[in-house]
Design a protein around this nucleic acid. Structure first.
Lengths: 242, 242
DNA sequence: CGCTTGTTTGATTTGAATCAAACACGGTGG
DNA sequence: CCACCGTGTTTGATTCAAATCAAACAAGCG
């Protein structure tokens, strides 16, 4: 059940920068637990005061924020290797929630050792900050998508970026990957109604960009999708994994 | 012209956490220059490879992102004390630009000493990360605003948050502060057209929430504005200033 | 004075929300 | 085994909010 960081199957992926034995051993000493969480569970509640820091080991999750009247904005989706709760640990209480989209496995790092990491391992602390900056740049992109793109472009950009992120993780085979996101999620992420989300997806399918057969998505034309979305393709740099 | 950090008039403001002599002295040793930039100038160009880290000493700026066809999303506005370019220094090239909204004064910190800070002063590095998390939480809020709120709510939330931020900096006198943002900026920040932005602002003025006499804004009813915007009032925690 | 930059206004069109059902499905319990 | 849910997707009709189009207007400036 508990996976030692030295044997972590994730970190061998090309998406991640290789780390020294010493570093990995230190990270392993940070890891307090390895837990499983069912789909639909909050990993961090909005307003929580004592959120820990997690690394998403397996499965998908998403960050979200809610308005008093119940409207929900999904801020970002989280894939394996992504850090969860850095922001909430620093700025508590957490002003957003994190929910498991699928069943999920998490490496648990105690938040109270965060400051200590900065003293012990400056390089690791630097990488934590780097991961925070990367997360921010994803949200920046989402804001640009929601603020500037029309409905069809939005969906296209959304699908395309998930495709790219899944791809560098090695989750994509023959342009296809497991796609646990439903249309309500997509609507909440893109700031559009469920009905309109559905019709827009249908349109893009009809245009031949992708299809979504039972729980998977197949991207038939990644380049066309990116062009359609006015998406500037940047290469995803390999990132640290804590 | 050059202001020593030990005599920095900004850091005495209640918006900021007090720091020890030693820390301030270290920050001062980091400061390479103090520069002035005219309104409308890019402090960081989109795509720039060697962005430095700055602290905004005086004036307003904003972060933005552009689509290939010229549409612009303003991601966030920056006020005195805010850090500029942390994200761009870590993840270069910068995927966003930063433009001076007014004439601006900046403290320049050389980006190549960033890693060194992590080794020298863990606490300071921690605070850098903290500032990054804070910046992110502002963008999170903006995304929720643009994704979930209607036009009038958006403008209300926008004005209200700027009011709060200006207030803790001591920039507000009798509910009024200098307001260098024009309607094009507001539209680009909120993802709405110029015309509609104008009409929405007019509506809120008519409702008596605020007025904008020559370059200043007066908030007649802050609480009402926050309620109208469905904005959860959280107290702005004092923050570090680097 | 004519220019530019920013604001305001009215008329028209359009994209997206809303309303209202139906449908497809996998699961479950009678 | 089949009727009955619940969750998620799909469809069509209607309304509404926001974009677009087109000007006019105000203020500051060389």
């Amino acid at each position: 059940m508990r996976v030692r960081c030295t044997e972590c199957p994730l970190r061998t992926r090309p998406a991640f920068v290789p780390k020294s034995e010493v570093e990995i051993e230190y990270i392993n000493s940070l890891k307090r637990d390895h837990i499983r969480v069912a789909a639909g569970t909050d990993i961090i509640h909005p307003g929580q005061e004592d959120a820990e820091v997690y690394t998403l080991f397996a499965g998908w999750a998403f960050r979200y924020q809610e308005l008093p009247d119940g409207r929900r904005q999904i801020l970002n989706f989280l894939l394996p290797g992504d850090l969860i709760g850095l922001q909430s640990s620093l700025l508590d209480p957490a002003e957003h929630g994190v929910e498991a989209l699928t069943a999920v496995e998490l490496c648990v790092h105690p938040r109270n050792r965060l400051l200590q990491v900065f003293g012990d391992m400056p390089k690791l602390a630097y990488e934590l900050t780097w991961l925070g900056a990367r997360e921010q740049s994803i949200v920046d992109d989402n804001l640009t998508t929601v603020g500037q793109r029309g409905a069809a472009e939005r969906v296209a950009a959304f699908i395309y970026t998930l495709y790219r992120r899944a791809d560098v993780l090695g989750l994509v085979t023959k342009n296809s990957f497991l796609f646990p996101v439903n249309q309500t999620h997509i609507g909440d992420a893109l700031g559009m109604s469920l009905v309109h989300t559905n019709k827009t997806i249908a349109r893009l399918k009809r245009l031949g960009f992708f299809s979504i057969p039972n729980g998977s998505i197949v991207i038939h034309d990644p380049e066309g999708l990116a062009r359609f979305a006015q998406y500037e393709q940047d290469d995803l740099a390999p990132r640290p994994i804590i």
